[in-house]
Simulated scan of single mutants.
Amino acid sequence: MRHRFGLSLLTLVIALLGALVVVATPTTYAAAAPGLPPLPTSPEGDPPGANDWDCVPSAERPTPVILVHGTIGDRKHLLERLSRSISREGFCVFSLDYGNRGLNDIRRSAKQLKRYTKRVLEATGADQVSMVGHSQGGMMPRYFIKRLGGRSLVDDLIGIAPSNHGTALTDGSNPISALVGSLVDLVCRACVQQGAGSPFLTRLNRGDETPGKVSYTQITTRYDEVVVPHTSGYLAKGRRTTNITIQDVCPLALPEHLTIPLATPTIDIVLDALERRGPASKSVSPRCL
Rank of each mutant, 00 (worst) to 15 (best):
L113P: 06
K76H: 13
G172K: 14
R276K: 10
S198C: 02
L201E: 04
R142H: 05
R240C: 01
I219T: 04
A110W: 04
G18M: 10
A123S: 15
R203V: 03
G49P: 06
L289S: 00
L262D: 05
T25N: 10
H230F: 15
L274I: 04
G233K: 08
G125P: 02
D208N: 15
C250R: 08
A263R: 05
Y143D: 05
I269H: 02
W53P: 06
R84Y: 13
I246R: 05
L169R: 09
R142L: 03
Y116L: 09
D248T: 07
Q193N: 09
P286W: 07
V187S: 01
A30Y: 12
T25V: 11
S8Y: 08
S109P: 01
H257I: 02
R2H: 13
R75D: 06
I244N: 02
V187K: 03
A31D: 02
Y116H: 14
D52S: 12
L96W: 14
G6P: 01
H69D: 03
N100G: 15
M139D: 00
K114I: 01
R189Q: 07
V226Q: 07
L121N: 11
V132Y: 11
V93H: 07
N174T: 11
A30V: 11
S163T: 10
L113W: 13
T63S: 11
T167L: 08
R240M: 04
V56A: 14
S58R: 10
L17M: 15
V129Y: 10
G73C: 08
I176D: 01
S95G: 03
G18P: 09
T245P: 00
R108A: 11
E122R: 12
V228A: 06
S109I: 13
G102Y: 09
I219N: 05
F200T: 01
L289P: 01
T241W: 05
R101F: 08
G150M: 06
N164K: 10
A32D: 04
G102V: 00
G197R: 10
L252F: 15
V129I: 15
K111S: 08
P62E: 02
H77K: 05
A123V: 07
T63G: 00
A123L: 10
L67W: 06
I66H: 10
G149Y: 12
Y143C: 02
I246G: 07
M140F: 15
S87I: 10
G195S: 00
M131F: 13
I86K: 06
S285D: 02
D46Q: 13
F94N: 01
P43T: 07
V56F: 08
A168R: 14
F5A: 03
P286N: 03
R2T: 02
L271I: 02
G90P: 00
T124C: 11
R276N: 14
F144Q: 05
N51G: 10
F91W: 13
T242R: 12
D155P: 06
D97Y: 08
A32Q: 10
F5E: 00
P40E: 03
P47R: 07
V180L: 06
S42Q: 05
R2L: 12
